[in-house]
């Protein structure tokens, strides 16, 4: 465990909490992609399947439970809460799950470290996490005026990924034999998807203006 990894995990948690609190406080999920949230839930469930038999550390186990729990709550709010579900922007959140899930499933069958169910599901979760933000980014682009909390949510998520890259660099430099090509490449692609958003987020922040994405 290094400081970059720790900062990454905390930022990830913070991003989810920002979103959950926004929904809870405003009773609105306007601008939030349910598709992205459900894809993240699928990512967490397929990756953290090992929770019950593969104990690594209390730290990891607590985070796994919290990530699954908080993301389930977001999905529950958006699908089931009597007021929140009415604010869901389903007409603009039209990205097809299959476009992301199918290629990731095929890729995880073709490129994995070991050919067994647990390993393939874990690999699938790595690939799926890399692209799960896409429905959210598309929705942001369509709704134009991005409210502050939604913007901060995506920014914190991107920052979390950036810190994971620093963590890998640090681990590569300090841990003999550490390598994780599959995770590195997926992670670089994932972080790359945020660059465009980052650019506009920083511009808006520098000019202290409301974040607006170009069409």
């Amino acid at each position: 465990m290094n400081l970059f990894r720790f900062a990454g995990d905390i930022l990830h948690l913070l991003s989810i909490l920002v979103l959950l609190l926004k929904i809870h406080a405003t009773k609105s999920c306007a601008g939030i992609s349910l598709k992205t949230q459900e894809l993240y839930l699928a990512v967490f469930i397929t990756r953290y399947l090992d929770l019950f038999w593969n104990f690594h550390s209390l730290y990891n186990s607590v985070f796994k439970v919290v990530y699954i729990g908080t993301t389930s709550m977001i999905v529950w709010y958006m699908r089931r809460h009597r007021n929140v579900k009415l604010t869901y922007d389903r007409d603009h959140d039209t990205f097809r799950y299959l476009f992301l899930v199918a290629p990731c499933a095929v890729l995880s069958l073709l490129i994995n470290a070991r050919y067994n169910l647990f390993e393939i599901l874990w690999t699938f979760s790595i690939y799926l996490e890399a692209v799960a933000i896409l429905p959210q980014l598309v929705l942001l682009q369509r709704t134009k005026n991005v409210d502050n909390l939604t913007g901060n949510y995506v920014f914190l998520l991107g920052l979390y990924r950036a810190f994971y890259i620093l963590n890998w660099v640090y681990r590569f430099a300090t841990e003999p034999g550490y390598s994780a090509w599959l995770v590195w490449i997926s992670g670089l692609i994932q972080t790359g998807l945020y660059l465009d958003f980052f650019y506009y987020y920083v511009q808006a922040w520098k000019q202290s203006k409301k974040l607006q994405l170009p069409s």
Binding site: H56, S57, N60, F63, Y164, Y178, A180, V183
Partner: peptide
């Protein structure tokens, strides 16, 4: 054995 892997990450 194999070196440390990314499985200890979240």
């Amino acid at each position: 054995g194999r070196g440390a892997s990314a499985k200890d990450e979240l």
